[in-house]
Amino acid sequence: MPMSRDEVFTKVQGVLIEALGVDEDEITELATLQGDLDAESIDFLDIVFRLEKAFSIKIPRGELFPDEILSNPDYVENGKLTSTGLAKMKGSMPHADFSDFEQDPDVSKMPDLFTVGTIINYVQSKLGGVPA
């Protein structure tokens, strides 16, 4: 039986408390990893390792937190994702909510896509529960 969203949230919360040293009440679905929870780039790999262990899943690198798109000049122009880049990013991150970001796909706002809710969506899709 797939885990409920609440059960996934509780486990993700535990992962983030350990990985980032944040308090339980700081972790909400809308909290962004970098802006709200002060995650640094190396913490993303730590989070991936901890999620794999907590949920007994395998997370291919670049699947939860895609980063190769930004280094492709075809996808970025004047600091913003091109329409092709945006489509590629949305395809790579079906677990993220792009509704705000796609209004102004400035690369500097990319970190806002990585929220606690994004992680929960991703984990649920990996566990065969609610699709991302």
Partner: peptide, 10 residues
């Protein structure tokens, strides 16, 4: 060794 892959290890 807890985990190991191409990106790193814990």
């Amino acid at each position: 060794l807890e985990s190991l892959d191409e990106s790193g290890a814990t």
